[in-house]
């Protein structure tokens, strides 16, 4: 049976927990930052041991394999340089046309590469921690992408690390557009706890013309994500709300379970 002393301890824990839960948002964020710093030595230890393992692997990898990979990368590099020349020409032409039409000039993206350090230990959120923080110029709500598509947005920044809300987290909704003739728009939200590669595209109009395989990109509405960042492809769709709207399942372009490096996008205002 519980003794009086135990009830007092339980009461103290309840009161302390309630105080912590009701702290102002800024204080909670600072407290989280402070507690996060406990794990910094462990993070350093993990990354240095990974580097050590990588260095050990360098000695094991045969020279023939390295030459083959180098050859492949050289070819890829040449192809990308040719594409860049073509892209620069298109950009120049685009800015000339924008100038003629008196449209606002499109700003080029500024990006920083980040390593994924930790994942959310709770099963009911989808977040990761990256190794860039406020000292690298990061702030809340910056978009995070990979070459395959949208990853999420920054939700909390500490000096050395930042938390990223992944696409599919209940707190990360994305205004999206289907790249079809009708340019149907909707909102991307999480599909379910186990479907990490699928999200739901909701609030589509009831006349939406959806087909499996159609690309889904960010619409640029909402002000957080720039438009035309790839999100994924339509898997299937069904009517919702007694036929008043349509919902589609979207297979994400990015494999969120296998993220190792991501790009943080700096948007010039």
């Amino acid at each position: 049976m519980l003794k009086r002393r135990h009830y007092i301890v339980l009461g103290l824990v309840v009161v302390l927990t309630l105080i912590i839960l009701n702290l102002p948002v800024q204080t909670t964020a600072r407290l989280k930052q402070g507690i996060n710093s406990i794990f910094l030595p462990l993070l350093g230890l993990t990354s240095s041991s990974e580097k050590l393992a990588g260095a050990a692997m360098d000695h094991v990898l045969p020279r023939g394999e390295l030459v083959r990979q180098n050859d492949l990368l050289n070819r890829e590099n040449q192809r990308l340089r040719l594409l860049l020349i073509e892209h620069e020409e298109i950009t120049r032409e685009n800015s000339q046309l924008r100038q003629q039409l008196s449209w606002q000039r499109r700003q080029p993206w500024r990006m920083k590469l980040a390593n994924v350090a930790l994942r959310d230990p709770a099963n009911w959120w989808r977040t990761i921690q990256i190794d860039l923080g406020s000292r690298d110029g990061l702030s809340n709500n910056l978009p995070v992408i990979t070459p395959e598509g949208l990853v999420g947005r920054i939700s909390m920044v500490t000096l050395t690390h930042s938390q990223v809300l992944l696409v599919g987290d209940p707190n990360c909704r994305v205004a999206a557009r289907v790249a079809n003739v009708a340019r149907d728009t909707g909102v991307v939200q999480g599909s379910g706890p186990l479907e990490t590669d699928l999200v739901d595209l909701i609030y589509l109009s009831k006349t939406a013309q959806l087909k499996p395989g159609q690309p889904v990109v960010t619409s640029g509405e909402g002000g957080v994500f720039p438009k035309d960042i790839p999100i994924g492809r339509i898997v299937d769709s069904r009517r919702m709300d007694y036929g008043m709207s349509t919902m589609a399942r979207v297979k994400l372009g990015v494999n969120l379970n296998a993220l190792e490096q991501v790009w943080v996008l700096f948007l010039d205002q």
Binding site: T17, T28, W125, T127
Partner: peptide, 14 residues
Amino acid sequence: GQDALSANPLGISV
């Protein structure tokens, strides 16, 4: 510690 590394409100797991 768990809440600090997660999107949980701080103190929810205690």
